[in-house]
Amino acid sequence: MKYGLHIGLLLLGSFVSQSAFAVLNIFACEPEWASLAEILGGDRVKVVSATTAHQDPHRIEARPSLIAKVRRADLLVCSGAELEIGWLPMLQRQAGNRRVLPGQTGYFEAAAQVERLGIPEKVDRSQGDVHASGNPHVHLDPHRLLGIASALSDRLAILDKPNADHYRSRLDDFSRRWEEALQRWEDQALPLKGMRMVVHHQDWVYLFDWLGMVNAGSLEPKPGLPASAGHLASLRKTLQDAPASAIIYTHYQNPKAAKRLSQLTGIPAVELPYTVGGADEVVDLFTLFDVTLKRLLEVVT
């Protein structure tokens, strides 16, 4: 009796997953990868994002709804480099979906496709919550993003072979538009070169690397630790000797520390979108960089 019920449930399970296989079910860990997967997959993919721009991707709970989504996914697209280490492994262990385990075709780590910055020489918690594999916020360098797009497109073609041409032509179209935009952004961003910026968290390493901007200090005393009054006072001292152009933070970070330091120093605090959905106008990856540059340029001009 129990076995009969169980087999019945299994059959139901395989029926549901097969009917859902008409398109690729993609589970993106962050909105930037959801956006990229949608651009590259078009109507051949159904994308859900595990997180929004309002949420700190370091700190997500392994919620039941996310387990259910991983259970049905054909492909996970995540930043990797330990950004999701606090929740993704739990989702993978709970969901019982072998297609999307590390090492499988259905598991795509964006950071693994590119050279990473900020690989620590020493992994020690006294240094805060550092990522041993380097800084995972790779999507903020549009050159790296283009490389990731190409790798992701290849992956889609492997998973959905009959539509390989579809993915190839979408990638070609995306790459052409992206390179045009890249040229425009790099022209616009010339005044930003050498600009010194105070950051909330080390989210912007790749953006700075691309634009030749300089990190003038972090609001977090150590990665992952909240800003303290003592730390802000010492930052203020540093900034008196070597001023910065702006203090940048993003939606999911509490603006209090940035605004407090802004009051203390007179340096403007600027909210940047960080990812798709991080500002009303940021509806895709193109507008993400448009708005980011616009807000930075407003500070220097």
Binding site: G80, A81, E82, I85, P89, P102, G103, Q104, T105, Y107, E109, A111, A112, Q113, V114, E115, V123, A132, S133, H143, R144, L146, G147, S150, A151, D154, R155, I158
Partner: peptide
């Protein structure tokens, strides 16, 4: 067996199935 990628440059992208999370963790 995980494939390992230490520095795959943007120019020479391979389809990396590797998982960084496992790469350096104990």
């Amino acid at each position: 067996m995980f494939l390992r990628f230490t520095s795959v440059s943007v120019l020479s992208l391979a389809v990396a199935m590797g998982a960084l999370a496992e790469e350096r963790a104990f």
